[in-house]
């Protein structure tokens, strides 16, 4: 049976903190003994989620003061669960279209945006998004993180 492990961190939602948070999660998951090739994907997923908050939920690049973000990570019998919470503008990942695969022969198809959500989805088994009161919660599930 997998011993329950938890990680919690608060940070202001800035682009610099998004990267720092992702790096810290990656370090923690490595310390937990999870496989390197999967930790890379989860570190990237957290970076993409947190960057999205900084850019869109609170408008980091518009010079607005950063709002808060909270990350809770648990690893237990039900798998790995990462929840990123914020109090900014809600965002519906289901409304984001999946970009087509780039065509090497067509430079217009080479993406310069829209890659974040597919990268998040590729790293996990399930992605959920919901709002509870003033908080938006994006939850990532991995059923067997040791595989």
């Amino acid at each position: 049976m997998t011993p329950a492990r938890t990680y919690r961190r608060y940070a202001p939602a800035t682009l610099a903190q998004a990267r720092a948070l992702a790096a810290d999660v990656g370090l923690t998951l490595r310390e937990w003994g999870l496989p390197e090739h999967r930790v890379l994907g989860w570190e990237l997923a957290v970076a993409e989620m947190a960057t999205n908050l900084a850019r869109h939920a609170y408008g980091d690049e518009a010079g607005q003061p950063p709002g808060p973000m909270w990350l809770d990570v648990t690893w237990g019998a039900e798998g790995l669960c990462m929840v990123l919470a914020d109090e900014g503008e809600a965002f519906d990942p289901a409304a984001v279209p999946v970009p087509p695969a780039p065509d090497p022969a067509d430079p217009d198809s080479w993406p310069e945006s829209g890659m974040g959500l597919p990268l998040i989805r590729s790293a996990v088994d399930r992605l959920e998004y919901r709002t509870e009161g003033a908080r938006n919660l994006m939850t990532l599930f991995v059923s067997d993180p040791t595989a």
Partner: peptide
């Protein structure tokens, strides 16, 4: 050591400009 979608986008943009 790490690349996210923003870093990738910068590389793609450079490739398009170079073209």
């Amino acid at each position: 050591s790490f690349v996210d979608s923003s870093g990738l986008a910068a590389l793609v943009s450079t490739l398009k400009t170079a073209l």
